[in-house]
Each structure stands twice: as C-alpha cells, then as structure tokens.
Amino acid sequence: MQRVWIFFAQASLTTIKISGLAILLGLCLGFIAALSSLSRLTVVRWPARAYVSVFRGTPALIQLFLLYFGGLQLGLEMSPIQAGIIGLGINIGAYMTESIRGAIIAVDKGQTEAGRCLGLSRAQTMARVILPQAARLMVRPLGVNSVALIKGSAIVSTISVTELTYTAHRFISSTYKPFEMFILAAIFYLIIITLFMRLVQWIDTRVALKE
C-alpha cells in the first residue's frame, strides 16, 4: 500500500506538469485570439471567432482523439503527453479567449478615449492603459478556466498518459479495488485543486492591491 502512495504522488506531478503547460499554451492562444477578436479588421477577427466557436462548441474528448488518433492517420506523430498538452491547451485557450476579451471590454470606454486623446496610438493605448487595468479583472475568470482544465486533464488518461486517473486504473487491474483507488486519486485531485485555488486567490489579492 505504501508503494501505491508513491506512484500516486508521481502521477500527480504528471497531472500538474501537463496542466501547467496546457494552461501556458491556453493563455498564449487566449491573448492572441482575444486581441484579434477585438480587431477592426474582419480578416483578423473572423478566425479568432471561429476558433472560439468551434473549440467551445465540441467536446474536449473528441478534440483530443482527433488530434492524437486523427493526427497519426495524417502522419502527425505525437507522444500521448504531447498530444495531451496541445489538445488541452488549444481547448482551454478558447475559453480563456472569452475571459480575456470580457475583461478588456469591461474596462471603461473613456479610458481608451483618454489614451487616444493624449496622443497614444491604438496599440499603445491597449498595452499601457487598457491591459494593465483589464489584468485585474481577468485573474478570477482565468483561475476558473484553469481549475476546469486541471480537472479536465483526467481525459488524457484515455490516450494512456500516466497521470492520476490512468494510474488509478492501472492499480485497479492489479489490486481489483476500484473504489479505493479512485477515491485515492480523488483525494490527490482535491489537494491539487484546493492548493491551486489558494494560489489564484493570492494572485488576485496581489493584483487588486495595486489599485
């Protein structure tokens, strides 16, 4: 039983690693898509809108299978971990786009007008006036997205990434104790999520203090 704990601890590190990298990828995609969806140019705006609509409109599990198994068929070979990170990252990126876009829109319009009146360019106004104020508003929604991603990362067990859920499965086939193993995995998830929510709260208070 002691050995089991060690394996579960290692597996939770994999869960944390995959989630962390996917969150980073999602943030990058989210920022790019959010800024493009606010562009004046239809050519720039349209792909961002399509990205959000398609990836929020279909199940993450299907997206993952399409990337991993469909990718193999098209000659795009990836390890399960790579496919997991990329699949989860692209999926959560669509949700993060909406969080970031919402925060930017929530900043008072007068701020943009004031920035422009002072002779700043559109890009400068966005980077120096709007984004610093929007950053405060996006911490919470992005935190919610990230928590959803950490929980959602369980689906990569279906393409045999040895994270928490997969490890629980593996031990069930040797111990025949599904209830205990899944509850043990659940405890690890609860710890990870609870700690992560603390982190988000801490960031939130730090960012809010600058006001």
Partner: peptide, 21 residues
Amino acid sequence: WVFMGTPLLLQLYVVYFGLAE
C-alpha cells in the same frame, strides 16, 4: 466541495466501477 474539486471522469468511474465493488 468534493464534486467541484474532482474530475467528472473520475466521478463516472467511482459510480460505475467503484460502486460495483
């Protein structure tokens, strides 16, 4: 707290495989 802090996939497994045990 428990249902919000754990993955749906795991909850499915507990209800299906876990309760069977």
